[in-house]
Design a protein around this nucleic acid. Sequence first.
DNA 1: ATTGTGGCCTGCCCGC
DNA 2: TGCGGGCAGGCCACAA
Length: 261
Amino acid sequence: MPELPEVEAYRRLAEATALGRRITAVEAPDPWFLKGGLAAAEVVAALVGSRLVAARRRGKLLVLDTDRGRALGLRFGMTGRLVVDGTAGVGRLLYTSGRDDPGWDRFALRLARGGRLRVNDPRRLGGVVLDPDEEALGPDARSATAAQLGAALAGSAAPLKARLLDQTRLAGVGNLMADELLWRAALLPTRPAASLLPAEGRRLHRELRRTVELLIERGGSHLGDLIPHRLPGGTCPRDGTPLRRATVGGRTTWWCPSHQR
DNA sequence: ATTGTGGCCTGCCCGC
DNA sequence: TGCGGGCAGGCCACAA
């Protein structure tokens, strides 16, 4: 599903194909997809006639800046895909259809010379905002320093995984990447966030950086080494131990009871 | 403030 | 063969 690696792929797609192009029209057929009471007419007034000048990402939020100072914020939920001129930002997403049904196009920008930038989202869990509050998000997981990661975990009795998923503390880690990261860092998801020893904190930061880069390179949050084994009967690909499954931080969580401590 | 829970959304998969 | 129930998780509202 769209976590940091997928949204980074969307960002690169938008940057490569849409920058410099003028917005000629806005298609907003689904009022539900416009968040915070936003009206389609407001989006039209803010964007039509302007030109896309930057494609940025913070966590799972994609921000498209225009030359008139307004910014479009796109969220992809669990099943949202970005498609520009018929080219999709990623191949497959886990937990969703492989089809590209036009009826699932929830929002689109028509671009000069006949192109289209659209969000195709079967489950409608994504959304659109104008001038998103980027400061409400924590530091981006790709560039977070060890000190920033430490601050995100400090003083918290919540499960480590819950804190990693808290987008206001650290932006970009979703459920699949959290399981992959903790498996690689050999840390139990249920550990109190503030219980990490200094060496464990350094290890978590090192594995966060590595995991994010690896999954961006592979092209998806579901392309980790643990993820294929997150199934009933699955075993740890490192040591063969049967994986455990439970709900942690409100999400289905899989881990190796042997090497994750 | 912190932490946990439930609901939203809907395509897909499993068992009957 | 069709049907119904459960499942997936990002995000938000709400409660304790």
